[in-house]
């Protein structure tokens, strides 16, 4: 039973930062693969992606987003009681990136700072974690930084981004509703099999082998079981959305926008069609910004909904799903929150 409600937590604002460098899925590939790439692009719906410079970490993008957000909110650095980073691309394996960022952002030593290892599903889980700390009365103002450095030239899906979200205690703020789930039996569907303590890096992990299509792979490459991820996402997410809406005592029409993790067009369109939602209420950034992992929900809000959210109170349903396997839904009302334009770094 992953359903819960948080009260007295206000969504104060959000900022997103993407790298300047643009990759084209069709043009930035060998001419011999062009036709195959065009078919792939048609189906995954991703034409362009953003890729960080070699020196750039996810945290470098998130810091730009966090600084802009703090400035626009006019929060002083000493007011931030907690800084939680949700990423699978930390600066180092240890220590936590969040603790390094406490210092980089000039926050107090009294700031609670640590990382959470979640990917595509991260956003609703992060809102719940930070929101719970605030709802308990333990802290008043907090930031969460979500995103990953996951783009490579070769892989056509992933794109980089860093985001910052601000929550604060506010008596009487509209409730936030959550449905959060985990299924570890599917952990092999998306994984980096090498480099942890189960299988530490060894020299043989960097020796590539050719698959039946002639593509080179290293044992240390990311494993992504496409059919398993597709089945998981399209079977789990629609009922979770309906369950959360029912739990909140709402109808689907009570929600203005449904912002889902941007996985790929096949998955996202299947989810949308199964929920019988019109395209206008389900914003997408797949075409231009690809799959930005855990950042894709805030990136899509920044890129597509900034104007709509500035004008009036809106009710959003956010749905994250993926690696773990893990899937979470959140319904929240947004009013007078701070939404800077998309940032680039």
């Amino acid at each position: 039973m992953g359903l819960s409600t948080l009260r007295n937590v206000r969504f104060a604002g959000m900022a997103s930062c993407i790298p300047r460098r643009v990759l084209s899925n069709v043009e930035d590939c060998p001419p011999s693969q062009r036709a195959e790439r065009e078919r792939l692009v048609r189906n995954i719906g991703i034409e362009h992606r953003r890729i960080s410079s070699e020196w750039q970490c996810f945290s470098d993008l998130a810091v730009v987003a966090a600084e802009r957000l703090l400035d626009e909110l006019r929060w002083s650095r000493s007011e931030v009681d907690a800084l939680i980073v949700l990423t699978q691309s930390p600066d180092y394996l240890i220590p936590s990136t969040a603790i390094i960022l406490q210092d980089r952002l000039g926050l107090d030593h009294a700031t609670i700072a640590y990382d959470v290892n979640l990917g595509c599903s991260a956003y609703p889980f992060g809102l719940h974690l930070l929101g719970s700390m605030i709802a308990s009365g333990a802290i008043k103002k907090a930031l969460m930084l979500v995103g990953d450095k996951c783009a490579t030239v070769r892989d056509p899906l992933f794109s980089d981004a860093g985001t910052a979200t601000a929550l604060e205690f506010c008596e009487g703020a509209p409730p936030m509703y959550f449905d959060l789930n985990s299924d570890g039996s599917g952990y092999k569907a998306i994984m980096l099999p090498v480099g942890g303590h189960r299988e530490p890096y060894a020299p043989h992990h960097s020796i590539p082998h050719r698959d039946e299509h002639g593509q080179l792979h290293r044992p240390s490459d990311l494993i992504l079981d496409g059919p398993a991820v597709l089945s998981f996402s399209t079977q789990r997410v629609p009922p979770a959305v309906e369950r959360t809406v029912a739990y909140a005592g709402m109808q689907m029409d009570d929600i203005e926008f449904f912002v889902f993790h941007q996985a790929n067009r096949m998955i996202n369109e299947t989810i949308r069609k199964k929920l019988r939602l019109p395209e206008q209420r389900v914003p997408s950034t797949l075409k231009d910004l690809g799959n930005t992992s855990g950042a894709s929900i805030p990136v899509t809000i920044t890129a597509r909904l900034t104007e709509a959210l500035r004008d009036k109170q809106q009710r959003l349903l956010l749905g994250g799903f993926g690696i773990g396997l893990s899937w979470g839904t959140c319904i929240l009302d947004v009013q007078n929150a701070c939404f800077p334009e998309m940032l680039e770094a």
């Binding site: 189906n43 496409g226 059919p227 597709l230 096949m266 369109e269 299947t270 069609k273």
Partner: peptide
């Protein structure tokens, strides 16, 4: 694999 994904979606939708 892309064709396979398309078929899984077709069965569903």
């Amino acid at each position: 694999s892309l064709a396979a994904l398309g078929v899984i979606v077709m069965f569903d939708i």
